[in-house]
Design a protein around this nucleic acid. Structure first.
Lengths: 187, 187, 187, 187
DNA sequence: GATGAATGAGTCTTCATTCAT
DNA sequence: AATGAATGAAGACTCATTCAT
């Protein structure tokens, strides 16, 4: 693994464990096993590391969200695919998920980065799926962004409960969640 | 207003504006218009201020959540009352709401505080309402904490979209949200 | 003596002994016997200390240069007075003299400061004396700034030789220098 | 041009532009277009570069100072030749002139180097010319080093004014300066 | 209680120097 | 000989905390 990746991995771990607020350079280079000056060969400052982490996490999430997405499948199948993908990304990449969640609205992340194309790609898919369902009279008529926020928010909230071990997330629970989120926006 | 309250209000404002990570003592006492030493008459350190803020915000939210709650009302009425109260707390006290949201899982908050009785009081009400609905065959059978998280999460997510002005929250939208959250957990 | 003065005195000493290039904050606060943070109660950064030093040195020199200057005296008397004052300032305040000499053209000094009124006051006196002498046919016709630079430069150069103990500067030598500089610009 | 010369030229340029204080190795090898390690094939450290620069500059000046010097010429001719050579060296090699001027009294330059034979060669010529003039009763009786400093200082000062474009230095001005410096030390 | 000058541990950052390639 | 990634000692600077007033 390259030094650059060592540094990023160490930083993500530390943010996950202690919060950005507590992450110092000294902790980073001790954890990453690099000299203090080495960081500056790769990043101008801490903000740049965080931005690089954000970019990587968003790319990773982008890959997950549209995994096995079949535009030909039924509305219900496609909806469940999208929701399941998001849920599984959260389960399999908790550090990345929480990082994105925490920093999506942070001034620490440059505006250009926040509106990355990759992430928006999947967002567009969700929005158009909502509009399609509404046209078919399946989904309730409401602001499509509100609607998006509803189904996205359910996953987000469920994951946070899962992370603090309020409940397990087995096959059963996951199906319950997918159905719950589907029903949330039905007429 | 007492110095103590000045300090707490200034701190909450600053956390809301810049994030805890960027809040320094120097900013706090400039904003609060007190001398630097004065803080130490009231708080041992920054963590204590944050904990005091957390306690106050939780107390405030506790009051809101059970406002006009009538244990005699129908399940549906009680459900809507609880959800509406949470939504309105978020709308009227955004700083407090976001603060609680951000720090509920933070190591900054002492564990004792996180499981404050006051806050749990309303939580118990919600949980028992869920169990009651499940017994009556109205709500789907699922882990009651998962269920709680679902309906809680919808409100949380909707509020965050509202804060960044993705959509307005008028009477119409609010009713849609309450119904959406109700349907989420129906059998 | 105030902390501010301690810091400035320590800095001037260090610049004199080792050159600005070698002056570090750590040396300054050790020499000045103050805590490292204390400097920042008085100065934003090192550049500000140097600028403050420059201002003080210029004010001090300004006082010296016009000491006992009698506008009614003969041209020769006035000329010698000005030259002697500059020479004596250099002898009595070597640190300040060298500091001004070294930094007058340095980007370290803010332009506003470099063109301080006080210093220019005495400069104007010298220039007008030169012009007066030229009108009377006593001084050679040449660019008045060139002329000023000549008589100023002689003092400057002599002082530098004196500082490295190339020769003593007693009453005799001083008179020789004043006469030499007078003759330099005679017709 | 060899790497060694590239490095020295880059360093002299940087010192001229920003002052020694601001010259870092990183700036040097970027300007010189060499790798960072390359410097150490030629110099132990920065001080050595500066010393090498000093030696080269002094050698260059040494060549200039005695250019066309005719020991058989009259005292006046020889005096003017020496003064003109110094002036022209300053005009044609400003970076070198200023460098020598700035570092001649700096602790950065090793003492052995400061008293280089080459440079002193021309110094001896000047001193003996002064003594000769004094013996002939042409020059005023004064410490020969003081005398040397006087005529040297005039050139130095004039050049500094010229560098900051206080005045031009054409044939006319140069003759005025040579005569002024001659008169300075006449009886 | 209230203050803010003084402090120094700790942070970010730079930069001369090394060393494997 | 030439390179430049890696280093860590040392620099500038911040900030929570103390304490005399």
């Amino acid at each position: 693994m390259s030094k650059r990746q060592d540094i990023m991995a160490a930083t993500l771990d530390l943010i996950h464990e202690e919060g950005l607020q507590a992450v110092t350079f000294s902790k980073i280079f001790k954890r990453a096993n690099v000299g203090s000056g080495t960081i500056y060969n790769y990043f101008e400052n801490k903000e740049e590391i965080v931005n690089a982490l954000y970019r990587e996490a968003r790319l990773l999430m982008g890959e997950y969200l549209l995994k096995d997405y079949n535009p030909e499948a039924s509305l219900y199948e496609r909806f469940k695919c999208l929701q399941l993908n998001r849920l599984q990304f959260g389960i399999q990449c908790p550090k990345e998920y929480l990082f994105i969640d925490a920093f999506s609205f942070s001034p620490y992340i440059s505006p250009e980065l926040r509106s990355m194309d990759d992430a928006h790609q999947s967002r567009e898919v969700v929005i158009s799926l909502i509009v399609e369902g509404q046209k078919q009279g399946i989904f309730r008529e409401m602001d499509s962004h509100l609607c998006h926020q509803l189904i996205h928010g359910i996953i987000s909230s469920i994951l946070k409960g899962y992370y603090v071990q309020k409940y397990p997330l087995n096959e059963l629970q996951m199906q319950q969640i997918l159905e719950a989120s589907w029903k949330t926006i039905l007429v």
